[in-house]
């Protein structure tokens, strides 16, 4: 009985350490990236990719934060920007749809890779599905939001 407990505690600690070794460097890399000149280039590229899905230029910042950091942070940026009135109704609706399926993807993917999953399938499938569904919503919202 004691042995079972010991085994469980040891296993849980091993797993925690493994995941921490991935998370901490990732957070540090993100901070450096965010304050670098490359950041603007990434935003421009993202805008280029998101335009066909119906997003305006201003949506890129909250989308980037959401995709990399998670919906909690992404929504924070989204809320701040929606209060400034620079996002269109379409931006807010589409960002919510996309980010509800596809956020914090780097962290999410890496933690599952650490325990033996295949990152290519996890990330690839998520991006494809989120993109297809968002496009479907865009087509659906297009007529409705213009009238509102």
């Amino acid at each position: 009985m004691v042995e079972l407990f010991w085994h469980a505690i040891l296993g849980s600690l091993k797993l925690s350490i493994k995941l921490i070794l991935i998370i901490v460097p990732l957070m540090v890399i993100y901070e450096f990236l965010q304050s670098s000149k490359t950041f603007k280039k990434i935003l421009d590229t993202l805008h280029f990719l998101l335009k066909p899905l119906g997003f305006s230029k201003h949506a890129s910042v909250s989308m980037l934060a959401g995709i990399f950091l998670g919906v909690t942070y992404g929504s924070g940026v989204l809320l701040a920007q929606s209060e400034k009135n620079i996002l269109t109704k379409m931006d807010i609706a589409l960002t919510a749809v996309y980010l509800s399926m596809c956020h914090a993807v780097i962290e999410d993917t890496l933690v599952f890779v650490a325990v033996g999953g295949n990152g290519f399938y996890i990330l690839g499938t998520r991006i494809v599905i989120a993109t297809v569904v968002t496009f479907m919503f865009y087509r659906y919202f297009k007529g409705k939001l213009d009238k509102a």
């Binding site: 600690l13 797993l15 921490i20 901490v24 957070m27 540090v28 890399i29 993100y30 901070e31």
Partner: peptide, 17 residues
């Protein structure tokens, strides 16, 4: 970065263990 990483790690241990 380290501070964010640390706070996520705490959350992680609290769930994982």
């Amino acid at each position: 970065g380290l501070r964010n990483g640390f706070s996520v790690s705490i959350k992680l241990i609290k769930t994982i263990v």
